[in-house]
Design a protein around this nucleic acid. Structure first.
Lengths: 266, 266
DNA sequence: GTGTTTATCGTCAGGCAGACGACTATGATC
DNA sequence: GATCATAGTCGTCTGCCTGACGATAAACAC
């Protein structure tokens, strides 16, 4: 019998955010420094309690706006928060994941274009963009000599799942454009793929593939810009969301290794 | 500031199950009849409260065993419950999804071979396998003349998401074997794909594809069986979990339609 | 102008999928 | 037992897509 309104164990429900962006040719995630125990002083993913009257996606969108400073949010499209893509990732509910109480966290994945420096309660060094490998590596030392302590709670797992989801999803969807500003060049889009996957792609084959997929890119009048060499055509994201056939990640053999449950393809 | 142990709104957390199987060449889901309000008498997905001391996947596995009568569960592999595949699907937390209180439901997807008739508290007609189209169609009439009332709560949405996840996931993973008994023929596996996708597949191309994908199928000695015509080779599921290149669903153009967040591909 | 950088177009060979023909091995029917 | 119906299995052929890579174009730095 599914539900019994009277007696149920009380849970706290939070949303945690894996906010990814591409900066300086590296896949980066937003991390905030914890100001109180447990894990005081450690880096963690941004997040917070779901409010009594809001939906999970609303809570995630609210947290995203609060942490990144994204100005507004059009509630008509829950997958869009002011230019950023937002989707549910997975839910984490190990009874011991928070030492204080039973907390179930509904993790969300956000993909954003390169944003200005993060803000968190006005405190300068309490939030930052960090390369995901730096946040995930255990026991190493970060760029600035700071010891790379593992993320708080099970946030390393959540971040890892989010990164894998993003890596896999840009294969078969047009989601990579969520890392780009409204207008972008084929080369900029390619550098997104290269940063997210950590591989080098052939510019000629990439160009053929993305321009040849109907609905992926639409030229914006034909304006151009520069970023080094010959001017490039500017594009906007087209209406297509799923790419068929997909962009395949080079070389990695997909056989055997299982990251299964978190990488449904839709 | 992510967490504040003192003041938080209390939530009830449940797991709901989308249990899919293939019976009589149709994709079927397990439904239970509600014995109490709200939605008394209506069909719903099986589910229940998460207990104080169990993980979400444990709760889902427990409910699955309770509802289907699957005998045992090896806790070493959380994705396997006595032959059935189990994975987290998505979490549903609309504030109004349960009229009584704030309930967040972590839906799970289970894929099982054709099981014996379901049992639910010993009551005979309080649980059944029903074709998913029958459960999802609104306002029509079911096979036995019974009016097809919509599923309780938001369970139609959950079921729909689960079905789409299964349809998409058998494309790029070996998960279709979860619908088959330990030993099966290529034809039986093909009928699984046909039932889940609702399309007809070319037996010759299908045979070439699945037998040519390394790690997908392993012949079991070479035994044969019958199910109509010429005896067929028997196979077990191989170690591969991800198929590369994938089995592609015929004709449906993946362009444009968006079922995005629920179909991550891994 | 020369060199460098990036963008874009083309070519070619190999792999894979869809369409479909052909043959094989059972059980059912006459 | 011959014929038929049903499935399973092996091949062929053609077209599409991808990876490798050559070539040209258009900007900027000297």
């Amino acid at each position: 019998m599914p539900y019994d309104p009277s007696a149920f164990p009380p849970f706290a429900v939070t949303v945690d955010l894996v906010v990814l962006t591409v900066r300086r040719h590296a896949l980066c995630a937003l991390a905030v420094r914890r100001g109180e125990p447990p894990f005081q002083g450690r880096w963690a993913l941004p997040g917070g309690f779901v409010r009594e009257d809001e939906d999970l996606s609303q809570g995630a969108a609210r947290e995203l706006v609060e942490e990144t400073g994204l100005t507004a949010h059009d509630p008509s499209d829950p997958a869009q928060v002011n230019g950023a893509h937002l989707e549910q990732l997975a839910t984490y509910g190990d009874p011991k994941r928070d030492p204080r109480m039973r907390v179930v966290s509904v993790a969300h994945l956000a993909l954003a274009p390169d944003l200005p420096a993060p803000r968190a309660g006005g405190d300068a060094n309490s939030a930052r963009w960090a390369p995901v490998e730096e946040l995930l590596q255990q026991g190493g030392y970060g760029r600035d000599g700071e010891q790379a302590a593992p993320l708080a709670f099970d946030h390393a797992q959540i971040l890892s799942d989010g990164v894998e989801r993003a890596r896999s999803k840009i294969e078969y969807s047009s989601l990579a454009t969520a890392f780009c500003p409204t207008e972008f060049t084929v080369g900029e889009l390619r550098r997104v793929y290269e940063a997210v996957w950590g591989v080098a792609l052939d510019p000629r084959n990439f160009h053929r593939k993305v321009t040849g997929t109907p609905g992926f890119l639409v030229p914006t009048g034909g304006t151009t810009t520069r970023q080094g060499g010959r001017p490039a055509q500017l594009f906007r994201a087209g209406g297509a969301t799923l790419l068929n056939p997909p962009m395949l990640r080079p070389e990695v053999s997909h056989l055997g290794s299982d990251t299964s449950a978190l990488t449904p393809r839709l």
